[in-house]
């Protein structure tokens, strides 16, 4: 397509929106609502993926050792575990380090912890094991637990990860279902808006056809009109979504010190949300307009 033609199409699209400003406004509103809900779905999905990755990284098996093992035995055991083909890393954590970590996690002003000195450290020695494949965590833990002579017990985040993922995928499907319904509704509204511009420009289209304009030449302005409606309709939801996420992030972040939950940082999420929301807006808009042009473009 030539630049001149492109400019012409964009100008025509702008004229179309201006001429039917009320219908355009309604269509933009419909797109905005749809995209807002779609955006919530996206934030959800992005975070699920993010969280899954984070959790995968964190999955670790805590092997609590029996009291009274010698330093030599402890070292040997760590080496043996390290050699297991399912194990990525095995790190020996002596009880002194365990206490130090605990104190760091719970803050420095915890009087109860401060009272605990190295001599009366109640913590056992541990080995932290990272599995190669997070899905085989249980298998590995069961295997390690067999060594009952040296190992007191084996812990891992049993079921927590699983349950979280299952719950979120159900919620994800529900939101997706609603979003798709809304997207259809928005496309329908856009196709009605565009139909008005098409009727207003019927004569023009007739003449274009008579002088031999290609079908795409006739379609482009409507395509752009739909795309513009999509872009304009995406601005408000993008701003709202990012603002809400920013506030939400602050709230969740307060609890982050406990290491339970980690959500995607605002900057990373904002870019993704902005780009994907706008693209979906353009897709809904142009789809809607193509639907209505089809009917008017008899050959």
């Amino acid at each position: 397509m030539k630049i001149d033609t492109l400019i012409r199409h964009i100008r025509e699209a702008y004229r179309g929106i201006r001429k039917n400003s009320w219908m355009s406004f309604a269509a933009i509103g419909a797109v905005a609502v749809t995209l807002f809900i779609f955006g919530i779905f996206l934030i959800f999905t992005f975070n699920i993926n993010f969280l899954t990755k984070e959790l995968d990284k964190q999955v670790a098996i805590r092997v609590t050792l029996k009291d009274g093992l010698s330093a030599d035995e402890e070292e040997k055991l760590t080496e043996t575990i390290q050699k297991d083909p399912l194990v990525k890393t095995a790190e020996f954590v002596p009880k002194e380090k365990g206490l130090k970590d605990l104190k760091e996690q719970w803050g420095n002003n915890n009087k109860f912890l401060d009272a605990l000195q190295d001599e009366d450290n109640p913590l056992p020695d541990m080995i932290l094991v990272q599995p190669k494949d997070p899905n085989k965590t249980k298998e590995l833990a069961d295997e390690l637990a067999k060594n009952t002579t040296q190992i007191e017990h084996v812990d891992y985040g049993e079921g927590v990860t699983d349950r979280l993922l299952r719950l979120s995928s159900v919620m994800r499907n529900i939101v997706l279902f609603f979003s798709l319904g809304l997207a259809l509704l928005a496309s329908f509204l856009i196709s009605n808006t565009i139909k008005l511009t098409i009727i207003a420009r019927r004569r023009e289209i007739e003449i274009m056809r008579l002088v031999g304009a290609s079908n795409w030449f006739i379609r482009w302005p409507f395509f752009f009109e739909g795309a513009f409606i999509g872009i304009i309709g995406s601005i408000v939801p993008i701003i709202l979504l990012i603002t809400f996420y920013f506030l939400f992030y602050d709230i969740v972040n307060d609890g982050e010190a406990y290491g339970l939950f980690k959500i995607m940082p605002v900057d990373q999420l904002s870019i993704r949300i902005a780009i994907s929301t706008m693209l979906i807006g353009i897709a809904i808009g142009s789809l809607g307009s193509m639907i209505s042009v089809r009917r008017f473009l008899k050959i």
């Binding site: 001149d4 012409r8 004569r203 003449i207 002088v211 031999g212």
Partner: peptide, 24 residues
């Protein structure tokens, strides 16, 4: 005639050439 009412005589004629993407 089938002319476009909001375009001038010149523009109406030019329209036919724009539609087939002739150089300006």
């Amino acid at each position: 005639y089938k002319l476009l009412p909001n375009l001038t005589a010149y523009e109406n004629v030019a329209f036919a050439m724009e539609a087939v993407e002739a150089p300006r």
